[in-house]
């Protein structure tokens, strides 16, 4: 390979930023703008602590958003994550509960905590495997499959908890992980893990072949195949990855609340989808980033907490989310069309 000449260097030093960066900036700006607007309207909104809370309180949805974003980029949905959150949490509790409790709901398998977590994770991965099987092998539309597996997962959780929750007879260290804080600060472990996950995700997206593959598959599945990419294997990995993240989220939540609640994570899959869409991830696939998703989460958090701050009832969130997603889709279509005319 010849060394690039001066002229060739000019070829690569493009003065134009990539579309992805443009969208990321757009979403970030909207997030900041909304934060400022909210600060004007809502008393006590404009504080560092508040901004931080907006992120830390949503660590679960943001984490789920990572898996959902990757799958969307590849051209697939994953609506099962909320169900997996419930399932893995319930399983973790069930496996860790000591045997011979007062009643059915208080008795478990008595496994050591770390083993219980592992088994719960295995349960989560099974659901992910089911997703992969139905979507990749049977070629059923992912929206239907993941709706089904979402119900399946949550359904198992409901059966295991008999419709409510399991929260008794747990080993002492069960609540450790979910409530652990860092070195004297009040930052909890799950939040740190979310941050680490985000960094890893961005790294994968930008720097790893695995990330690049996702974009190619989403952009043009036919060309991807004809270019030698094993689409089936890759999408399988993505579903397993998403399920794994959801499983860990569920385990951490069950640790935080020291209970396995079958309703946990309810509607989280939709919130994850919403923040991805707000963050500029294209439905058709081939475009989008977890960075955008992160700022999308920020937008959603600002809007919903401002609504609460303005004493709007929590019912407003449904309308606000709908409008936000609609505006996001319209704006991004318009923005990219104009830019690449």
């Amino acid at each position: 390979m010849s060394t690039p000449t001066q002229a060739n260097r000019a070829l690569s030093r493009s003065h134009r930023m990539s579309d992805q960066t443009c969208i990321n900036l757009l979403v970030a700006s909207v997030a900041v703008l909304l934060f400022l607007v909210a600060s004007l309207l809502v008393p006590n909104f404009f504080q560092w602590l508040n901004l931080l809370n907006l992120i830390t309180n949503n660590w679960a949805v943001i984490s789920l958003g990572v898996g959902v974003t990757f799958l969307l980029v590849s051209g697939n949905f994953d609506l099962s994550v909320g169900g997996i959150v419930a399932l893995s949490g319930v399983l973790a509790v069930w496996f860790a509960q000591s045997t011979g409790g007062a009643n059915e709901l208080a008795s478990g398998f008595g496994l050591p905590y770390w083993l219980a977590m592992l088994c719960a994770l295995a349960g989560a991965l099974t659901i992910g495997g089911l997703n992969a099987l139905f979507v990749v092998r049977f070629r059923i539309p992912s929206i239907i499959v993941t709706l089904g597996t979402m119900m399946l997962a949550r359904g198992i959780a409901q059966v295991v908890t008999q419709g409510s929750q399991r929260n008794t007879n747990l080993p002492a260290d069960f609540g450790l992980l979910g409530n652990m804080t860092l070195f004297g600060t009040s930052v909890k472990l799950p939040v740190v893990l979310m941050a680490i996950l985000l960094v890893i995700a961005v790294f994968i997206e930008r720097k790893m072949v695995f990330g690049r593959l996702t974009y190619w598959i989403g952009a043009n599945p036919v060309a991807a195949r004809l270019s030698g990419i094993d689409k089936d294997r890759h999408v399988t990995y993505l579903y397993l990855f998403s399920a794994c993240v959801a499983g860990i989220v569920g385990i951490l939540l069950s640790s935080e609340f020291k209970s396995g609640y079958s309703n946990r994570g309810m509607l989280m899959e939709f919130d994850a989808l919403v923040i991805a869409l707000l963050g500029g991830v294209a439905i058709a696939g081939g475009f989008g980033s977890v960075v955008g998703m992160f700022f999308g989460a920020l937008i959603l958090a600002v809007v919903t907490s401002a609504a609460t701050g303005l004493i709007l009832s929590p019912d407003w969130q449904f309308i606000l989310k709908a409008i936000a997603v609609f505006l996001a889709i319209m704006t991004q279509t318009w923005a990219l069309a104009r830019r690449n005319r």
């Binding site: 990539s18 072949v209 690049r212 190619w216 952009a219 043009n220 036919v222 004809l226 081939g286 475009f287």
Partner: peptide, 20 residues
């Protein structure tokens, strides 16, 4: 257009795909 290229990606992003 439909089988050979990833049309919404750039030249740089298209070229490496067959030999990762």
């Amino acid at each position: 257009r439909t089988q050979g290229l990833f049309t919404n990606l750039t030249i740089r992003e298209n070229i490496p795909v067959m030999n990762l």
